[in-house]
Amino acid sequence: MKQPTIQIESLSTGYRGKNNVTIVAHDINATINGGELTCLLGPNGAGKSTLLRTLSAFLPPVEGSITIMGRDLKDYPDKELAKAIGVVLTEKTDLRNMSVEDLIGLGRSPYTGFWGTLHEDDRRVVAEAIEMVGIGPLKDRMIQTLSDGERQKVMIAKALAQETPVIFLDEPTAFLDFPSKVEIMQLLRDLTRTTGKTIFLSTHDLELALQIADTIWLMDKEKGVMIGTPQELASNGSLNDFFSQRGISFDIHDVEGSLCIIPRTK
């Protein structure tokens, strides 16, 4: 049932300067499955953003290869890539005076013609995206009048309108209050179920990720990337290792299949 849509082989991420190469993460080997929500966790500076940028083809890999839907990432022409990967970024756009519906409509750009005019099909897809994310009442609002959470949903709808099998999100829950965080994460997991899309996101919301994600990637500067279901990572001690390095210990309890993290008091 679970098909791997993304294969990563001996990937090193980093930045190429004129004379030197700065490597951020070494030798990552992994697959990401379709129909699953995968969360990338790690402390600041572990290289989460660099990995996401590399996977989104904003940054070329220093070494190794990324295969998406059976095709090497570097063999995708711009136009094809835009139909394979949708992204939602951390940074806020400074957009003003554009309606939510128009912005989501821009997600159709890879499919629209020269003028970017939306046809009936495009409008249908946009309406479906709005429906899926549940922002119908917002669709005529101007983007600058939205809250951070609403704006994040709009960008997710934009990625949905792009109709890509893969969606990457860089810290989609940052800047949000707790209920919105939960809402966004649940929305993303539901989307993997209803659409079969591959959704991969980075986040700092550990507890939420452990409870909602299908697969967790723990990323660390020294140890590299550890991958598993939340339960696997809890039972094989990876999670504990991950925390103990930072001088913090936690108790992880499995309460009816969902993980609870309780800081250990001395």
Partner: peptide, 8 residues
Amino acid sequence: QYARNLGL
């Protein structure tokens, strides 16, 4: 970045 992701 969004523009690039949309194929520009």
